[in-house]
Simulated scan of single mutants.
Amino acid sequence: MSSVWSANDFDPLEEIVLGTAQGLTPPPADVSLQHFFEPPADADQEQIAPAVLQQVVEETEEDFADLTKVLESAGVTVRRPQPPQASRTYASPDWESVAMHALMPRDCLLVVGDKVIEAPMAMRARYFETLPFRPLLSEYFDSGAVWLSAPKPQLPDETYVYEPGASVVADFEPLFDAANLLRLGRDLFFNVSNTGNRRAAEWLRRTLGPEFTVHEMSICTDHVGTTLHVLRPGLLLANSERLTPDLIPEPLRSWQTIWVGQPEDDGYAFDWPRASTWVGMNILALGPDRVLVPDNQTALMRQLEQAGIEPIPARFRHGRTFGGGLHCCSLDVRRTGELISYL
C-alpha cells in the first residue's frame, strides 16, 4: 500500500516533507521573476550581502528544526530533501537562469490521493525545483505511489502576459504551481492566475479522470495559501482584503467563514519582500482541530480559538524574505481519511 495518501489539507497529518533553505540563491530579475513577484523597478540592482543571505539561511533552518520538533511531538514523520547546490546555473535553448531553492515543496509538487505530480512551474528559476526531492519521490514510488510529471514547458518571453489590472500566463502550454490548488477530496479548486492557466486545469482534468472535478476560480494573483484555506468541512479561513462573500467559490459560499484581518508584519531581510504580510495566514493543519500558526499572528490565533480550533504557535521569521510560509514550505504526503466528496 502506498505511503502517499493525502486528499485535503485538514485530515490528521501523518507524514510531511519540509523544504530546506540551504542552497538559497536569489535569481536575476528576468521576465518570469518580474511577472510572479511584481518587484520594484530597481529590483535588478539588488545586492544581497553574503552575510545577510547566510543569516537568513541559518535562521530559517533553525525555524525548520523547531518546526520538526513540534511535528514529531504530534506523531508526524518529517522528511527533508537533499540540499541543492547554491548558485547552480542551467539553460534551455531560449533562456538561462539559476536554481532558486528547494524551500517550497508545496509549490512544485501536488499530492492528490496516492498520486504525486511534478508541476510545470512558470518561473524559470524554479524549472528544476523538484530535483532535490527526487530521492524521496523515488522512495514513494517504490512504496506504491503514482509518480507523474506534467509536460516540461518552454517558457518563452511570450508566456508572460500583462493585462489591465492583472498579469497572466499564456495558454499555449500547461503551466501551474501546485500551490494554485485548493484540495477538497474529489474536488480541486484551481486558481487561474499569473502562475496557472486554463490549459493546465484541463490537463489536470484529463490526467486525474472522472473521479475528480477540477473547478476553475480566480481569487488572487498567484497561490491560494494566503487567500483561502479549508480548515475542515463547512469552515473556511479567508483573506478579508482580497475576498468578499460573493468572491468565495460558489460551491463553498454556504460554508462558515473566518475573515482574517490584516496580519502582523514580520519584516524582511532583503531589499524588497517576496511576499505580502498575508503570508501570516499561511497556516498548516495537524488535523481538523489543530493548526500551526506563525507565532506573531496572535489575532489570528484568537479567531481560531473562538472557532474551536487549537492554534499551535511556530516561529517562522523569514516568510516575507523568501516568499513562503508554513504551508508553502511543507508538503503533506500522508494524512488519514478517505477520498470523498464534501460538496
Score class of each variant (00 low, 15 high):
residue 253 R to N: 02
residue 146 V to M: 13
residue 295 D to H: 08
residue 236 L to T: 05
residue 261 G to K: 06
residue 62 E to R: 15
residue 289 D to M: 00
residue 35 H to F: 01
residue 236 L to P: 02
residue 192 V to I: 15
residue 339 L to D: 08
residue 87 S to E: 14
residue 59 E to G: 02
residue 297 Q to G: 05
residue 49 A to P: 02
residue 183 R to Q: 06
residue 104 M to F: 14
residue 11 D to P: 06
residue 282 N to L: 04
residue 337 G to Y: 03
residue 38 E to P: 00
residue 330 S to V: 07
residue 158 E to I: 12
residue 245 P to C: 01
residue 236 L to N: 05
residue 55 Q to Y: 00
residue 164 P to G: 04
residue 283 I to M: 05
residue 144 G to K: 12
residue 22 Q to S: 14
residue 94 D to E: 14
residue 128 F to Q: 13
residue 284 L to Y: 12
residue 262 Q to G: 00
residue 92 S to D: 09
residue 16 I to N: 07
residue 10 F to T: 07
residue 133 F to G: 07
residue 246 D to W: 01
residue 140 Y to K: 05
residue 299 A to M: 08
residue 190 F to S: 05
residue 274 R to C: 07
residue 168 V to F: 14
residue 145 A to F: 06
residue 310 E to W: 00
residue 129 E to G: 12
residue 121 M to T: 05
residue 196 G to D: 03
residue 189 F to R: 00
residue 100 M to L: 14
residue 249 P to L: 02
residue 243 L to C: 09
residue 281 M to T: 06
residue 122 A to N: 13
residue 127 Y to T: 11
residue 37 F to S: 10
residue 30 D to E: 03
residue 155 L to M: 11
residue 146 V to Y: 04
residue 90 Y to P: 03
residue 151 P to W: 09
residue 148 L to R: 12
residue 12 P to Q: 11
residue 245 P to I: 01
residue 197 N to R: 04
residue 226 T to I: 10
residue 153 P to N: 11
residue 43 A to Y: 01
residue 67 L to N: 01
residue 73 S to G: 08
residue 340 I to Y: 01
residue 220 C to M: 10
residue 80 R to P: 08
residue 299 A to Y: 08
residue 220 C to F: 10
residue 338 E to R: 10
residue 224 V to C: 02
residue 257 T to I: 02
residue 337 G to A: 06
residue 148 L to H: 04
residue 291 V to I: 15
residue 154 Q to L: 14
residue 168 V to Q: 07
residue 127 Y to R: 15
residue 218 S to Y: 03
residue 211 E to C: 11
residue 178 A to C: 09
residue 299 A to P: 04
residue 188 L to G: 01
residue 25 T to K: 04
residue 281 M to L: 06
residue 279 V to P: 04
residue 219 I to Q: 11
residue 188 L to A: 03
residue 8 N to H: 05
residue 141 F to H: 15
residue 173 E to W: 05
residue 50 P to Q: 12
residue 175 L to T: 09
residue 181 L to R: 01
